[in-house]
Design a protein around this nucleic acid. Structure first.
Lengths: 247, 247
DNA sequence: CGTCCGTTTCCGTCAGACGGAAACTCACCC
DNA sequence: GGGTGAGTTTCCGTCTGACGGAAACGGACG
C-alpha cells in the first residue's frame, strides 16, 4: 500500500485489482488509476488486458467491476472449495432447526472474515456478508477465533478494542477473562456488542489436526435470550463440518 | 490459450492464474509453469509476487492454491454480489418447501455456469457446484438459458449436442422443438438427460429490463415425477429474485 | 551415498513497459 | 449551436525492469 521500492508490472496489476473492495465495487478508470496510484494511461493499458481476460468487466454505465472469471477463480480457493462446501449441509440443518442467521468465519490477521451465511427472509438483518471482514472483539465468531489465536494476535487485538456499541467490550482485562471463559466453556456469546438488537452464540470448528480453523455461529435478535440452549446443536454441526473436511 | 504475438507481463500473470481450474485446483510450480507455458524461473518470480499479495498460497504439501484474497475479490463480482445475494432468500424458501436441490445458473457462452446451490444432507447428489460450468443442452437451467439465448448461440449449441446419458437430447430438430416448448410453457424439464436418476424443473429469472439473466431450478431424484407442480412456486421465487435485484 | 525431480537464486542482455501529451467522446449548460 | 470539462483512448520515443539459461540447492527415495 505504501512506498514499495520497485514497482513491478505484477504489483501494478495487483494494485489495480486491489482497488476494488466491498465499499467501492464499481470504479471508473480514473478512480482505479488513483486508487492504484498509477498514471491513467498505464492503468488504461493494464485494465485493457485484464478486461480481455474477463478479470474485470464494464457494467452498464461504463464503470469497471470485478469479472466473472475472477469469481470463478475465487471459488477454487480452499476457503470456498473446502471449508464452505463442507459447512453448507450442517449450516443448512442448523438453519432449519432455528430459522436464525447461521454464519461461519475464519480469522484473517486481526479480523474475522465471513465465509458463508444462511438466512431466510424472516431472520434478523446482520452486517456479515461472505468475503467481508468484521472486528474480532465484537462478534461471536471473532471472540472464538481470538480465544484460540496465537499470543501475538491476542496482544494486538486486546490493545486496541474499538467500541462499536455501548456494550462492546473495550477493557483489556475483561476481554482476556472473556477469552478464557470461551476456552473453558467451548462457546462465545455476544449481546449487542456489534449492533443493537442482535446477539450471537459461536463455537469453534476444528480442522484435521485439532486446531481451530473456523467458527460457526447463530445470530438472533436480542429478544431470544435462551440462545445458549443451542450450544449442543452448534457443537454437533461443528463436528460434522470437521468430519466432512477431512474426507 | 494458443500463440499470442506479444506476451505481456500481464498476460503471463493471467496465464498463471488461468492454470487453476476445477479439475486442478492444486498445482506445483512446475505444473503451473507448464500450464502457463512459461519457463520455471519466470513462473517462480511471478508466483512469488502473487504470493506476496495473497493471490495464491501454498498449502500443507507445498502446492500452490488460489489464495484468500482472490476469493474475496471474487465475491465483489456482480454474479456474487448482485445475483447471488438477491437469490439466496428465495432459494432458501424453495428449499424449505421442497427439501430438494435448488440451483441458479447464468449462461456463459455455450455453457451454464452455476452460481449457487442449496442442498441438505438428504437431497439427491448432483454435479453442479458454484463456479463450475455444465452443458446447456442437458440441464434444466441450461435449456431455459438456451431458449432465451441469441440465435447464434442456439445455432452453435444445436450443431453439437454431445450425449451424456442415454436420454440426452442429441437431435437438432428435437432440441429446437424443446426450446420452443420452453418459451411457450415458461419452464424446462429434464429427465435423466444429465445423469441417471435425476430430473429437474427450471424457470427463467428476469433482469430489470425483462431480459433473461439467469435460470432457477429444482433438481430431484427421478422417483418424483410430479415436479411440474412446483412450477408456480419456482415462478414466484424467480419473480422475487427479479424484484430484489432491482433494489 | 548417488540419483532424480522440483525449487530457488543469480545476473547480463534487450524486449517490452512506461507515461506525457494530445486527440477524442459525451454530457451538460449557456 | 458551440463552449466547457471530466473521463477515456491512442500514440510513440526513452530507458528500465523483465527475461530465462544456468547452476546451486533440497530432500525423497532406494
Amino acid at each position: 500500500m505504501a512506498a514499495d521500492p520497485r514497482p513491478s508490472v505484477t504489483s501494478r496489476v495487483l494494485a489495480i485489482l486491489g482497488a476494488f473492495d466491498e465499499h467501492r465495487p464499481r470504479l471508473t478508470l480514473t478512480e482505479l488509476a488513483q486508487a492504484a496510484d498509477l498514471p491513467v494511461s498505464t492503468a488504461h493499458r493494464l485494465v485493457g488486458e485484464l478486461r480481455a481476460w474477463d478479470a474485470v468487466e464494464r457494467d452498464a454505465d461504463g464503470r469497471y467491476v470485478v469479472g466473472r472469471r475472477l469469481w470463478k477463480l475465487g471459488t477454487l480457493a480452499p476457503v470456498a472449495r473446502e471449508l464452505r462446501e463442507a459447512s453448507l449441509p450442517a449450516m443448512q440443518d442448523l438453519y432449519e432447526a432455528t430459522h436464525e442467521n447461521v454464519q461461519i468465519a475464519v480469522r484473517e490477521g486481526t479480523t474475522a472474515l465471513y465465509v458463508e451465511r444462511i438466512h431466510g427472509k424472516a431472520s434478523v438483518p446482520v452486517l456479515s456478508r461472505p468475503g467481508v471482514p468484521l472486528p474480532l472483539h465484537a462478534t461471536g465468531v471473532g471472540k472464538v477465533l481470538l480465544a484460540y489465536a496465537p499470543r501475538e494476535v491476542v496482544e494486538q487485538c486486546v490493545e486496541n478494542l474499538q467500541p462499536i456499541t455501548r456494550y462492546t467490550i473495550t477493557e483489556r482485562g475483561r476481554m482476556l477473562r472473556e477469552l478464557a471463559a470461551v476456552r473453558r466453556l467451548g462457546y462465545a456469546r455476544t449481546v449487542e456488542e456489534m449492533g443493537y438488537g442482535t446477539c450471537s452464540l459461536a463455537v469453534p470448528v476444528l480442522g484435521p489436526d485439532d486446531e481451530v480453523v473456523a467458527s460457526l455461529a447463530l445470530v438472533t435478535s436480542t429478544v431470544r435470550r435462551d440462545l445458549v440452549k443451542f450450544a449442543p446443536a452448534l457443537r454437533v454441526a461443528a463436528a460434522s463440518i470437521t468430519r466432512r473436511m477431512s474426507l
